[in-house]
C-alpha cells in the first residue's frame, strides 16, 4: 500500500506531464527511493495510480536498469566497467571488492549491506576508475583505497 506521503509525491510528479502515464518513470523512482525496490504489490499500486495496467508498467520497470524489481542491499554500489575505467584497472578494483566482501557483480552481500552492480560510464572518465555508491561518486579508486571508501557505507 502506498502511504499518504507517497501518494502526495506521486501527485507532484504527475504535474510535470500532460498525462499521468508520462510520470511512470518518476513514479517508480520516487517510490523506490523510499522502499529500496519495487515489489509486485507496489507495482500494482503505482499502476493503479497511473491508470495503466500492471503489465504495461512492468514492461517499463524492467527496461530501465536503475529500477530494481528485486530486493537490493542497504547500499548499492555501481561499478563503472566502461572503457576509460577499464584502461585504468577497474577489473582489479572489482576483484578486490570480491575478495573483501565476497560479492560478485549482480549480487548482494550475505549481511544485506551492499549490492554490487555494473554501470555504464559514469561520466567521470577524467578520474577513472570510478564507482558510485548510493548517490556519491568516488573517482581515482584503486584496489588499495576501495576498502576505506566502502567502509563508509554501513
Amino acid at each position: 500500500m502506498l502511504s499518504e506521503t507517497e501518494r502526495r509525491e506521486l501527485e507532484e510528479a504527475v504535474k510535470h506531464y500532460p498525462d499521468k502515464r508520462g510520470a511512470a518513470i518518476d513514479a517508480l523512482l520516487t517510490i523506490q527511493r523510499r522502499r529500496g525496490w519495487i515489489s509486485d504489490d507496489l507495482l500494482l499500486d503505482i499502476a493503479q495510480f497511473l491508470e495503466i495496467t500492471a503489465e504495461d508498467l512492468d514492461s517499463v520497470a524492467t527496461f530501465y536498469n536503475l529500477i530494481f524489481r528485486k530486493p537490493v542491499g542497504r547500499h548499492v554500489a555501481f561499478m563503472c566497467d566502461s572503457i576509460s575505467c577499464w584502461i585504468k584497472g577497474c577489473e582489479r578494483v572489482q576483484e578486490q571488492i570480491k575478495n573483501l566482501y565476497d560479492v560478485e557483480l549482480g549480487q548482494t552481500t550475505s549481511d544485506g549491506r551492499l549490492t554490487l552492480l555494473p554501470i555504464a560510464c559514469l561520466g567521470q572518465c577524467e578520474r577513472a576508475p570510478a564507482i558510485m555508491i548510493d548517490q556519491d561518486v568516488h573517482g581515482d579508486i584503486t584496489p588499495d583505497t576501495i576498502e576505506q571508501i566502502v567502509e563508509k557505507y554501513k
Binding site: 506531464y17 517508480l28 523512482l29 530501465y64 536503475l66 529500477i67
Partner: peptide, 10 residues
C-alpha cells in the same frame, strides 16, 4: 521548464 531524471539505458 521541467527536469526529468531518467533511470538508465544508453
Amino acid at each position: 521548464l521541467h527536469l526529468h531524471s531518467s533511470a538508465g539505458r544508453y
